[in-house]
């Protein structure tokens, strides 16, 4: 029973990480830039979602607010700033680093430093019981919703014309442009989608993780571990990486609580030693 609980926890936490990691990976795919401001989308999504959900008493409106706002933020960041530095990877990474600090201070200014936590919506509160197995209903909801998002992302990327254009733009932007794909527009769209996914994760995560200054860096660290293990820019890699981090984190902490960070950073180092580009990296 101990093990079933641990694995279920690990999968649920992994699926939340998938939402963040897949956004980071998508943005890297089209921009070739590790977006260090990715944790900020999570933070802002969480703050806005918490505020709107508490004010309107509607969790759905909270989600909508978090997703739309981070999507717009992503569009502005990409079109007004990052795009000007096309190809200059160092400048772009520094720019995202700047945004990380800027948005952290801005959030502290707007929302103050008091930690906040969103109430779990009534329909999703309580836990599911089967024999001795107890699992929070809300975490089940997160897992299922994230799995749906993963499926949708997979279908769009692999089965649609849009997905084919994205893959072409990732593999060879110049050739794709030459074949009539509007690569800049596509990059903006993917950047917005990636930011929105992180914003969604922020709203979904706030009832169990809460939100406070510093939550952005906490999540960014985990998201980086996910994409580094899975391979940056790879969709199946992100899925495997998030499940790996979720499970390793849970099982490692339960078995060796004193070595909690080693539990997933050590396997990560090992994987990188054997496959420097991650499990699914090319």
């Amino acid at each position: 029973m101990f093990w079933i609980t641990l694995v279920a926890n690990g999968v649920a936490f992994g699926m939340l990480l998938f939402l963040i990691g897949s956004g980071l990976s998508l943005i890297f795919g089209v921009m070739r830039v590790v977006n260090l401001a990715h944790g900020s989308y999570y933070l802002i999504g969480a703050y806005l979602g918490t505020g709107v959900a508490a004010a309107t008493n509607s969790f759905l409106l909270g989600i909508a607010a978090g997703v739309v706002a981070t999507m717009l933020l992503g569009v502005v960041m990409q079109t007004a700033f990052l795009e000007r530095f096309g190809g200059q990877i160092l400048a772009q990474v520094l720019l995202t680093m700047g945004f990380l600090l800027l948005l952290a201070d801005l959030s502290l200014w707007v929302w103050g430093g008091t930690p906040q936590i969103l109430a779990i919506p009534d329909a999703l509160s309580g836990s599911v019981r089967a024999g001795g197995f107890v699992f929070p209903r809300y975490r089940l909801f997160i897992s299922l919703l994230s799995a749906l998002v993963a499926l949708a992302l997979y279908l769009v990327l692999e089965r649609t014309r849009l997905g084919a254009q994205v893959r072409a733009a990732v593999d060879d932007p110049e050739m794709a442009q030459g074949l009539g794909v509007n690569v800049p527009r596509l990059s903006t769209a993917m950047f917005a989608l990636g930011a929105a996914l992180a914003g969604l994760a922020g709203v979904l995560g706030s009832p169990i993780l809460g939100v406070f200054p510093g939550a952005d860096l906490e999540i960014l660290t985990l998201a980086l571990a996910v994409v580094i293990i899975g391979g940056l820019g790879s969709f199946p890699g992100t899925l495997v990486g998030s499940l790996f981090v979720g499970l390793a984190d849970n099982i490692g902490k339960a078995l060796f609580p004193e070595l909690s960070y080693i539990a997933f950073f050590a396997p990560m180092a090992l994987i990188l030693a054997v496959r420097p580009r991650g499990l699914f990296g090319r």
């Binding site: 101990f2 609980t5 641990l6 510093g214 849970n250 902490k253 609580p257 004193e258």
Partner: peptide, 17 residues
């Protein structure tokens, strides 16, 4: 006696113990 790292994101593995 269970010790958790400062600022743990997810306490579920510790709760399971």
């Amino acid at each position: 006696k269970i010790w958790t790292p400062l600022g743990s994101a997810d306490f579920s593995p510790y709760l399971a113990r």
